[in-house]
Simulated scan of single mutants.
Amino acid sequence: MPRSLEQPAAKRGRPGYDQDSVLNVAVQVFNKYGYDATSMGTLAHNLGISKSAIYHHVPSKGELLRLALDQALVPLEAIGEDERALTGTAEERLEFILRSTIRVLIERRPFVTLLLRLRGNTEIERTALDRRRAVDRQVAELVVKAQEEGSLRRDIDPRTISRLLFGTINSVVEWYRPGGPVTAAEVEENAIRMMLDGVHSRNR
Score class of each variant (00 low, 15 high):
58 V>T: 15
58 V>K: 04
59 P>E: 13
60 S>I: 11
60 S>A: 14
60 S>W: 04
60 S>R: 04
61 K>M: 05
61 K>L: 06
61 K>H: 04
61 K>C: 04
64 L>A: 12
65 L>G: 07
65 L>Y: 02
65 L>D: 07
66 R>A: 14
66 R>N: 12
67 L>T: 09
68 A>I: 01
68 A>D: 00
69 L>E: 08
69 L>I: 08
69 L>K: 02
69 L>G: 07
70 D>T: 11
70 D>N: 15
71 Q>A: 15
74 V>F: 00
74 V>I: 14
74 V>E: 14
75 P>R: 03
77 E>S: 12
77 E>R: 11
78 A>C: 04
79 I>M: 09
80 G>C: 14
80 G>R: 05
83 E>Q: 11
85 A>F: 09
86 L>K: 14
87 T>W: 00
88 G>P: 01
88 G>W: 01
90 A>V: 06
92 E>S: 15
93 R>W: 07
95 E>I: 11
95 E>Q: 12
96 F>G: 01
97 I>K: 03
97 I>D: 00
98 L>C: 09
98 L>P: 01
99 R>S: 11
99 R>D: 10
100 S>Q: 12
100 S>G: 05
101 T>P: 01
102 I>N: 02
103 R>C: 09
104 V>N: 05
104 V>C: 02
106 I>H: 03
107 E>Q: 14
107 E>N: 13
108 R>Q: 14
109 R>D: 08
109 R>L: 06
109 R>E: 10
109 R>T: 09
110 P>D: 14
110 P>S: 13
111 F>C: 07
111 F>Q: 13
111 F>N: 12
113 T>C: 07
113 T>S: 15
113 T>E: 13
114 L>H: 09
114 L>F: 00
114 L>I: 08
115 L>F: 04
115 L>R: 02
115 L>I: 08
116 L>I: 04
118 L>H: 03
119 R>F: 01
119 R>L: 09
120 G>S: 01
121 N>C: 08
121 N>G: 12
123 E>N: 08
123 E>K: 10
124 I>A: 06
126 R>Q: 15
126 R>K: 11
128 A>E: 06
130 D>S: 12
131 R>V: 00
132 R>H: 15
132 R>V: 13
133 R>S: 11
133 R>P: 03
134 A>M: 11
136 D>I: 09
136 D>C: 05
138 Q>W: 00
139 V>W: 01
140 A>T: 11
142 L>V: 11
142 L>K: 04
142 L>S: 10
143 V>M: 03
143 V>D: 04
144 V>L: 10
144 V>H: 07
144 V>S: 06
144 V>Q: 06
145 K>Y: 14
146 A>V: 06
146 A>N: 02
146 A>Y: 05
147 Q>S: 09
147 Q>L: 10
149 E>Q: 08
150 G>E: 05
152 L>R: 01
152 L>W: 05
154 R>L: 08
155 D>K: 01
156 I>P: 00
156 I>W: 02
156 I>C: 01
